[in-house]
Design a protein around this nucleic acid. Structure first.
Lengths: 354, 354
DNA sequence: CTGAAAGCGCTAACAT
DNA sequence: ATGTTAGCGCTTTCAG
């Protein structure tokens, strides 16, 4: 049994209003015409009984669930929570619900999440894939019969449209900026090199260094403050002392800043610092930290719009031939020059948080 | 019609495996015994067809949706996104889904959110009420037939259990800490005084000031950097120059810090600073900022556990008489003494982010 | 141990 | 303009 509290049913409303079930259905959905007086009675009955349609029944009749999913590594991550906020807002505008599932970047949880969404018959979903190259993911996604949009990381083979920031170019420009400042020995610090975004940024760094005939120094094993501090300590020693540090993710930027500060290394006097991804207080600390800013809101918005375009397209134009262009949207990043790279912007550049 | 892609049905699986629908249902739910060989055939058919049970049908049969809701002002807010992360994790452990709805602290959206959740027949939900005193909310909540837990802010009348931090005591202790440092003229800056949490903190500040025979100076109209800077400018002038500033929310703390810094006011030399709510980099900026830290994870965890206890209680013990104690859980906050208040902790106190 | 059949609450032909 | 009715996919007695 396990009856979940007795919600009134449409039939009860009908009985209460002394009409047929169809009539009630009609006034609820407000499509066909019903006699004003009848309508009034039905509405009174609805209010009286506190009736709310059971969506499960509608779904069973073949209707959409008006629900979408969001599959991300973590919802506590500011990047993804901002995307979630945007997505939820747009979903609401369309009268849709948002189900959030987190994967911790684990394949297994991701697989589970997709299955769960399928079982719940969501009308579509947005996903930030744990592994862009995964064959399993690709085939799983190909079985899915609802629109899917990849966010922040594409899926290899472009089996679904994606909306990602241009990590490669963003990192390349940032590195060039450092080079333009005259630094020769520029190190790059990061962790999670397994992630698509990080790999792309690393590639951008390497490309810029190579183009300038400079030697790339890439540390990919930074996982916490200790490892970051150790890496920096080593780079500060010897004749080939590093002149600038480019960090590829938020937490590493903060750790590097902290390490430099505690070692009393002047920034940018002795070592310049530039981080990928803007963050709260990046413009408030002294020196203010120069960063590559991602268009977070726009990423979320674009993904949401793409998803809903497909959602509507499916119900309206019913599959435009096969022209479901697997769009791969690439959004530009921007460099926010502050003080840590050696730039001295006028003091009006207050911190913008991502 | 609007058929949502043709998922295989249980009947199709039955046909494929050459058994009755009942048998398929049994192997899916794994409750009753089925002949190993029959079971094997069914499982093969399931795999072959890629069958996933339609939850809507189950729900229609009177089963739970195994879905819970979360209603918060914003999911982009680090506080609530952390709670969401915890809640989603615990929900997943129980095999439940999480639906997230945001209200922007608006009554109307909140009402809508609750109705939506009811329509979708969630098994329960967690809510951070926009207005703790709202009669409408209270009555709405009393109509709801599923377990509800209030988070961060209680509902007046204690119609639902709640899990909140002790804002009053947290602010009182913080103010006392400032007083213990010898400051006499301590100002309190905040915005959103309409919110329960902020009001409680303001009360705590006033209580501590009154107890010490000090005059409370409360500015409640801080809404952005400009207003914060203006307020501080005024406080810096004249003979009654303020000696310490207590900010009641994150954004104001950051704005105050920035304003002080840009006006080259030595912290804590000239003016001490203490903020409510910890944040990323609070321990990294110079001087490191002393804050009142909220037990965010614990708030989320406790709310989730409370919710699931009620969820399980309802299906197991079927309403323990009337002993549904409307628990009001009050969690302790802690003061993290850093440098901005005048304390000089040894340099080992690295920044902890909320 | 397995299957046939009756609905759960709703919508949509099809009648009237 | 409104009512009757047949399922949607699933679980669950109740028989075999």
């Amino acid at each position: 049994m396990t009856k979940q509290g007795k919600h009134p049913t449409l039939r009860e409303v009908a009985k209460c209003a002394e009409v047929g079930t169809t009539t009630v259905s009609r006034v609820i959905n407000g499509v066909e015409y019903v006699e004003p007086w009848t309508k009034a009675r039905v509405e009174r009955a609805i209010k009286e009984l506190g009736y709310l349609p059971n969506i499960a029944a509608r779904v069973l009749k073949g209707h959409k669930t008006r629900t979408i999913g969001l599959v991300v590594p973590s919802i506590a991550d500011p990047f993804f929570s901002s995307c979630a906020e945007v997505l939820q807002g747009i979903a609401r505008q369309h009268g849709f619900l948002l189900i959030v599932l987190t994967t911790q970047n684990e394949r297994e949880m991701e697989r589970e999440a997709i299955n769960t969404l399928t079982q719940h018959r969501v009308d579509g979903f947005v996903i930030a894939p744990a592994d862009a190259e995964s064959d399993e993911l690709r085939s799983l996604l190909m079985r899915v019969t609802v629109p899917v949009v990849a966010l922040d990381r594409p899926v290899a083979g472009a089996v679904v449209p994606s909306v990602v920031a241009d990590n490669f170019v963003g990192a390349k420009h940032a590195t060039r900026h450092l080079i333009a400042h005259g630094y020769k020995r520029i190190a790059c610090l990061t962790g999670e090199i397994g992630l698509y975004t990080i790999r792309e940024r690393a590639r951008g760094y390497q490309a810029a260094m190579a183009a300038a005939g400079l030697k790339a120094v890439l540390s990919t094993a930074i996982c916490d403050y200790a490892s970051c501090d150790a890496a920096i300590a080593k780079m500060l020693k010897g004749p080939d002392q590093v002149q600038a540090i480019f960090t590829l993710k938020n937490s590493v930027t903060v750790d590097a800043f902290e390490a430099l500060q505690r070692r009393s290394v002047p920034i940018p006097g002795k070592v310049a610092l530039l981080g990928y991804d803007d963050f709260q207080l990046a413009g408030t600390v002294r020196p203010a930290i120069t960063v590559v800013q991602q268009p977070i809101e726009e990423l979320g918005k674009t993904a949401a719009e793409l998803l809903f375009r497909h959602l509507k397209g499916a119900s309206a134009a019913a599959m435009p031939a096969k022209a479901r262009t697997r769009q791969q949207v690439l959004l530009k990043t921007s460099l926010i020059p502050r003080a840590s790279c050696g730039c001295r912007p006028d003091p009006s550049s207050r911190g913008s948080s991502s």
